[in-house]
Simulated scan of single mutants.
Amino acid sequence: MSTNHTGTGMAAPLNGGRVAGYAGLLVLGALTGVAGALVQGDWFPGGLVLALLGAAALFYGGRITTGTGVGVAAPALGWLIAVILLTATRPEGDFVFGAGVGSYVFLLGGMVAAVICATLRPPAWPASGSARPGK
């Protein structure tokens, strides 16, 4: 007796494609964190809004494409690692983030966006072949 265990979401079997996808989301999260750190201080307040929208879009996009919470966690982890590394001071005393309110809004806003995207349910797609939802 053979049983086929093909799950969806978190129950789906782990394969090379899924691991590569999550690794790609991790790298995209780090790149988004670096870009957001640079933009949010230069073009205040528009840069701050742009940086937060970019991070939130990446987190939610990871949720939609993978259908799992890991799709949010991977880019959020990359974003957080990049932002934490950029907040550390260098031996010369230089750092990327200033002491203004925009830096704190970017740090807290990005974390809040990750939590919100992780708790959202992915949208229900209509069945294939149906022109109208619910039919």
Rank of each mutant, 00 (worst) to 15 (best):
A20C: 01
G21W: 14
G24T: 12
G24D: 01
G24A: 07
L25V: 03
L26N: 03
L26E: 00
L26P: 02
L26H: 01
L26Y: 05
V27Y: 13
V27N: 13
V27S: 12
L28N: 01
T32L: 11
G33W: 01
G33Q: 04
G33C: 02
G33M: 02
A35P: 06
A35W: 12
G36Y: 06
G36T: 10
G36F: 03
A37N: 04
A37Y: 03
L38Y: 07
L38T: 10
L38W: 12
Q40H: 12
G41A: 02
D42V: 14
D42S: 09
F44Q: 04
P45W: 06
P45E: 10
G47L: 06
L48Y: 00
L50E: 03
L50T: 06
L50R: 05
G54W: 08
G54L: 04
A55T: 00
A56R: 00
L58S: 00
L58E: 01
L58D: 00
L58V: 00
F59H: 09
Y60G: 12
G61Y: 12
G61K: 02
G62Y: 08
R63I: 04
T65K: 15
T66V: 04
T66N: 10
G67N: 12
G69I: 06
G71Y: 09
G71A: 06
V72W: 04
V72A: 12
A73Y: 07
P75A: 04
A76S: 07
W79F: 14
L80E: 05
I81N: 05
A82G: 08
I84M: 15
L86Y: 15
L86D: 11
A88L: 08
A88G: 11
A88H: 07
A88D: 12
T89F: 13
R90D: 09
R90I: 14
P91D: 15
V96G: 02
F97W: 10
F97V: 02
G98R: 13
G98C: 10
G98S: 10
A99W: 08
A99M: 12
G100D: 14
V101M: 15
V101C: 11
V101H: 14
V101D: 15
V101P: 15
G102I: 15
S103D: 14
S103M: 10
S103I: 13
Y104F: 09
V105E: 00
V105H: 00
F106G: 07
L107I: 09
L107G: 06
L108D: 07
G109L: 03
G109C: 04
G110Q: 01
M111E: 11
V112W: 04
A113G: 01
A113F: 03
A113H: 01
A113C: 06
A113Q: 02
A113S: 04
A114E: 02
I116K: 11
A118H: 08
A118I: 06
T119M: 15
L120E: 02
L120W: 05
R121A: 13
P122H: 03
P122G: 05
A124T: 13
W125R: 09
P126Q: 12
S128E: 08
